[in-house]
Amino acid sequence: MTLVDYLLAVGAGYDPRDGFDTPQQRLLSQAGELLDGYGPNDFVIKASGGQRPLATTDTPWIGFFDPDESVTPMRGLYVVWLLQASREAWTLSVNMGTELRAKTMKKAGDREAQVLEALRAEAAAIRGGLPADLTSGWGAAMDLRRPGIRQRRYEAATIIAKTYPLDALPDDKTLAGDLNHACLVLAEAMQARDRFAIANPGTIFTGSAVHVDPNDRDLPFDPGVDVTAVISLPKRSIVRKPRHEGGLKRYGTWLQCRNFKLTTKVHPRDFVITSPTPWIGEYKVVYGRDVARATREAHSQLKEYRHFLYPAGASRPQLLAVFSAPITDRRVTWLNAEDIAVVWDEDDRWRGCPLAQAAGLGL
């Protein structure tokens, strides 16, 4: 089923008063299967027309989630299609989770106004960190035509948006292209959010990035555990295998056996080696053959962390990029030229470039 046909089929006949036993609700429940092939290959696709069996929603949604960021609209950043309550148009948006944000607000005064103000401020901060060429042609607001709490929060949490009248939807190629563009903006927005959190500690919901000297207190190494996610579809289930935490834990344990001291309690950095020589470490999963994405992200994040978290003139740590699979020699050479040591998992052995080998960080 094409994306344009899907949006038409859901939007044209959707009515929340009809309950859950409708063709439109069934299409929403099958979004992951019907829209497979749209958006990045590793994204999780979910849609909803309400909370079964409690109540339907006036504004059904179709979400495209980067599984390394979030697989729920409650937290993190994600791409989403939202149908206006009037059923006149769909809006494609890069949006933020709102539920957990709301829970942090004190129940005093006009709490909902505080929530909306905080969401708008955070969305504006992230939007301000995006390259101008990525936001050109996109708006910064949406109108869901419904004054409900959830709808107002969606509107306040909008980073970028584009609205398509249902009776004038563009062709499928255009819609798919806009969706892919929104997913690209999502990746940039995640990095913009992290940069803002580092440069402005405590002003964004992603958490404070205040640097803590590892010598001031004992910081544990505890990357957590991978949790296999099972996405249930009518005809099949998709099993999302563990990715980040398991690999980081294996590498960290390997380092500890070699008498290195390290910690993961240094958000937003993945880990920091504190002894014998300080290093900032970033662990990246390589998806398929896409080494470019993994190496670019590791490079930009490591450089940003050291620039913002460690003042010029002070003792600054070295940089280490760790990958879940081998990367190309050209990518290793490039990272080395940027003063980044490289380690990768190859046949369950932590191989390293000469810089990493000299420091004992890889074989």
Rank of each mutant, 00 (worst) to 15 (best):
A161R: 06
V210I: 15
I280C: 07
D270F: 03
G246T: 13
A197W: 02
V185Q: 06
W254M: 12
R217T: 15
P170D: 00
A209D: 09
T277F: 04
T274G: 01
Y164R: 03
P214T: 04
L179I: 00
N259E: 11
G202S: 05
N259M: 14
D171K: 14
M190P: 09
V266K: 03
L255S: 02
G252N: 09
D171V: 09
P165D: 03
H181L: 12
A168E: 06
G177S: 04
E245W: 07
K173W: 12
A199Q: 13
R193K: 08
M190N: 12
A182L: 01
K261L: 07
W279Q: 01
D226F: 05
K173A: 15
L248G: 03
L255I: 08
I280D: 07
V272R: 11
P165T: 00
R258C: 09
R243D: 05
N215K: 15
N200V: 11
R217G: 12
S232D: 15
S208E: 07
R240K: 14
G247K: 03
G246K: 07
L166V: 03
V230M: 11
K265G: 14
F196E: 11
L169T: 10
E245M: 09
F260I: 06
D226Q: 05
L262V: 04
A168R: 15
G247V: 02
F271H: 09
S275T: 06
L175C: 00
R236I: 14
T228G: 13
L262P: 00
G207A: 07
H211E: 01
L175N: 02
A192L: 04
L169S: 07
D226G: 14
D270Q: 13
F196T: 06
T163D: 07
L233R: 08
A176G: 03
